[in-house]
């Protein structure tokens, strides 16, 4: 049984909007085990980004606890938090957020700064990661010379630079066409399978969410529904329709001949 790497208890987050207090998260509870691939869905303004930011230590809870490996990060001072972000978290953003004046490799090297790695080591690691996301030979390209899908791959490579425990992805496919969407989801899913990286992904896209193993529906700052995704089938090597054994590479179940990764309406949002 996997152990929980993230435990959220009674988390609330309020923002001041002028004099009015806006409640973005309300007494939210969530436990995520090591190696899980979790999708957070929900309508706009439901608190998805806020939740991800609190988990990623770039926003602070108003009340409640956020335990990362049993340590409450909610009350940690900034001079410790940045190290957690650097060493444990890998952020992937909807808008990629690559530095435009750095090439792909230099962008991937950024999180390694201050980790005591030599220039050569940083270079090597960045090249390896870029190769892993399918961008070997593109190391020297600046973001404006890469397609949107390629830019998001660079961002994923950057997120992986320090071998983080978590990948936190906020609508990573939001700015991509369907072809690139599928590839980025595949990339994340494979990452989760092969490296065991815990992934929490905010998405609006049901198809994308369906490829995770656990889907959460957020509404008005609360988790209102939870559902298993198709990724679980991959992990368990079982067909989600008939329950017979399948290979991870199978797209269609050898027994019932139904597609394993079917499209269905997940939550009525």
């Amino acid at each position: 049984m996997s152990k929980p790497v993230l435990q959220i208890e009674n988390l609330s987050k309020n923002y001041m909007l002028g004099k009015r207090e806006v409640s973005a998260l309300k007494n939210l509870n969530l436990t995520v085990n090591a190696g899980e691939f979790v999708a957070i869905m929900g309508p706009s303004g439901s608190g998805k980004t806020t939740l991800l930011n609190v988990i990623g230590c770039i926003d602070k809870p108003t009340s409640g606890q956020v335990l990362l490996d049993g340590i409450d990060v909610g009350k940690m001072p900034e001079n410790q938090l940045y190290k957690i972000r650097r060493d444990k978290m890998g952020f992937v953003f909807q808008t990629f957020n690559l530095l435009p004046y750095l090439n792909a490799r230099e962008n991937v090297e950024l999180p390694m700064e201050g980790k005591g790695k030599s220039k050569a080591e940083q270079r090597k690691r960045a090249s390896e990661l870029l190769a892993m996301v399918g961008l070997s030979g593109r190391e020297g390209h600046r973001p404006q010379r890469l397609s949107a899908g390629e830019q998001q791959r660079v961002a994923i490579a950057r997120a992986l630079a320090n071998n983080p425990a978590f990948i936190l992805a906020d609508e990573p496919t939001g700015n991509l066409d369907s072809q690139n969407k599928a590839e980025i989801i595949k990339l994340l899913a494979n990452l989760n399978l092969s490296q065991g990286t815990t992934i929490i992904m905010v998405t609006h896209d049901s198809q994308a969410a369906n490829h995770t193993e656990r889907m959460l529906l957020l509404k008005d700052g609360k988790i209102v529904k939870e559902k298993a995704g198709l990724h679980l089938a991959k992990k368990n090597n079982k067909c989600p329709n008939c329950g017979s054994s399948v290979q991870r590479t199978d797209e269609v179940c050898p027994s019932c001949k139904k597609p394993i990764f079917q499209t269905e309406e997940l939550f009525s949002t």
């Binding site: 972000r85 952020f91 953003f93 999180p111 700064e113």
Partner: peptide, 16 residues
Amino acid sequence: TKEIGTLKAIGFSNSS
């Protein structure tokens, strides 16, 4: 601003 936010999110300290 966004670049700075990104740098901090990926682990840059205030002092760097």
